[in-house]
Computed example of a mutant assay.
Amino acid sequence: MKKEYDFSKMKAVKNPYAKILKKQVTIRLNSNTIDYFKQMAKEVGIPYQVLIDSYLTDCAVTRRKLNMRWR
Rank of each mutant, 00 (worst) to 15 (best):
R28C: 05
S31D: 09
T26P: 08
V44R: 13
K11C: 05
K11G: 09
Q39I: 04
K23M: 05
Y36L: 12
P16E: 00
P16D: 00
P16A: 00
I20Y: 14
Q24V: 09
P47S: 11
K14S: 01
G45S: 03
N15S: 10
K38M: 07
P16L: 04
Q39N: 01
K19F: 01
F37K: 02
Q24A: 13
F37W: 03
V25E: 05
K11P: 11
E43M: 12
E43N: 13
E43G: 05
K42G: 10
G45H: 03
Y36K: 07
E43I: 14
Y17M: 06
V44M: 05
I46K: 06
I20H: 11
A12S: 13
A18K: 15
P16C: 02
A18E: 14
A18F: 15
A18P: 07
D35W: 01
K38Q: 12
F37R: 02
L21Q: 07
E43A: 10
K22I: 08
L21A: 11
T26Y: 06
Y36P: 01
N30V: 07
I46G: 01
K14A: 02
N30W: 05
I27V: 15
K42R: 11
K11H: 07
Y17E: 03
D35Q: 06
K11F: 05
R28D: 03
L21N: 02
L21K: 14
V44H: 06
Q24R: 08
I46N: 03
M40N: 08
T26R: 10
Q24I: 08
D35K: 08
I20L: 09
Y36S: 01
D35F: 02
T26C: 13
K11D: 07
M40V: 12
V13Q: 14
R28M: 08
M10D: 06
N15M: 09
K11E: 07
V44D: 02
I27N: 10
P16R: 12
K38C: 07
K23H: 07
K38G: 06
D35L: 03
T33Y: 08
N32W: 04
L21W: 09
S31G: 11
L29D: 10
I34S: 10
I27G: 06
K14D: 00
Y17D: 01
I46D: 03
R28N: 13
V25Q: 05
P47D: 12
L21E: 03
N32K: 15
L21G: 00
I34E: 07
K22W: 02
T26F: 03
Y17T: 05
N15D: 12
K22D: 06
D35R: 04
K23Q: 09
K23D: 03
K14G: 00
A18V: 15
L21D: 00
F37V: 05
L29M: 15
E43R: 15
I27H: 06
M40I: 11
K38Y: 01
K22Q: 04
D35M: 04
N32T: 10
V13L: 09
P47N: 10
I27A: 14
Y36F: 12
Y17H: 11
D35Y: 01
Q24E: 12
K42M: 08
S31T: 15
K23W: 02
I34A: 13
P16W: 08
N30C: 13
T33W: 07
L21F: 10
T33Q: 12
F37M: 04
M40H: 10
V25H: 06
S31H: 08
